[in-house]
Lab assay of single mutants.
Amino acid sequence: TTQFTVHSPEQAEQWKEYAKQKGLEVHVQKKNGTWHVTIH
């Protein structure tokens, strides 16, 4: 599991796309103005 924080919805979307291409599961949670992205 990879977990990191991004600071814009655009970055979060890019990671979603990346994960989809790799066939991975991605979870994005918005918290205090940042987005926590978890890739399984």
Rank of each mutant, 00 (worst) to 15 (best):
P9R: 15
T2A: 10
W35L: 05
F4A: 04
Q29A: 10
K22M: 14
Y18P: 01
V28Q: 00
T2W: 15
T5G: 04
Q11F: 05
Q11W: 04
V37A: 00
I39A: 00
T34P: 01
G23Y: 03
H7F: 12
H27F: 09
V28K: 00
T34I: 15
Q29N: 08
V26N: 00
Q29H: 09
V37R: 00
S8I: 04
E25F: 13
N32H: 06
T2D: 07
T38H: 04
G33Q: 05
W15M: 05
H27T: 13
S8W: 06
K20C: 06
Q21I: 12
T2G: 08
T5L: 11
E25P: 05
Q29W: 08
G33T: 03
V6C: 08
H27E: 09
K22W: 12
F4V: 10
E25Y: 13
K22L: 14
G23M: 04
Q29G: 05
S8N: 06
P9A: 15
T5P: 06
Q3T: 13
V6E: 03
P9Y: 15
H7V: 08
P9H: 15
V6T: 06
K16T: 08
L24I: 07
T38I: 13
T1L: 13
H27Q: 07
K16R: 12
L24R: 03
E17Y: 06
Y18K: 04
E13P: 01
E13G: 04
T34A: 15
E13W: 07
K31N: 11
G23P: 04
T38D: 03
Q3L: 06
N32S: 05
W35A: 01
K16V: 15
N32W: 03
S8M: 04
A12T: 03
T1E: 11
W15L: 09
V6W: 02
V6K: 01
N32E: 09
K31G: 10
H27L: 08
H7R: 06
P9E: 15
T38W: 08
K22Q: 12
H27W: 07
H36D: 08
H40G: 10
W15C: 07
T34W: 12
T5V: 14
H27Y: 09
E25D: 11
K20M: 10
K20R: 12
G33A: 04
V37K: 00
K31I: 15
H7C: 14
E10M: 06
E10W: 08
